[in-house]
Amino acid sequence: MIARIVVVPKPVVNDPQGVTVRQGLASLGFGEVTDVRVGKYIEVRLDATSEREARERVDAMCSRLLANHVIEDYHFELEHERKGAMR
């Protein structure tokens, strides 16, 4: 199974990277952009017997290491890998 995890700064946390990217987009003519938040994307490949088990394990990974609950929120999607698929 693959977990596709997205970690973003909490709305209350100042995100200077996001502000700078928004300014960059504005200078390129994308004036319609009202907000940008820069986070990270983490892909985790794991063995699990069920989606429920995988969800619990990935949630624990996020809360214990992959995201810092003081400053970040996270969400993720799980995707089944085809057996024998090329890695």
């Binding site: 100042n14 200077p16 990277q17 700078t20 003081v70 400053i71």
Partner: peptide, 17 residues
């Protein structure tokens, strides 16, 4: 120390980048 929970809060990117 913040990450380990010995102190509260966190240190984030400088506002100036």
């Amino acid at each position: 120390l913040c990450e380990s929970g010995l102190l509260p809060g966190a240190l984030i990117r400088n506002a100036s980048l």
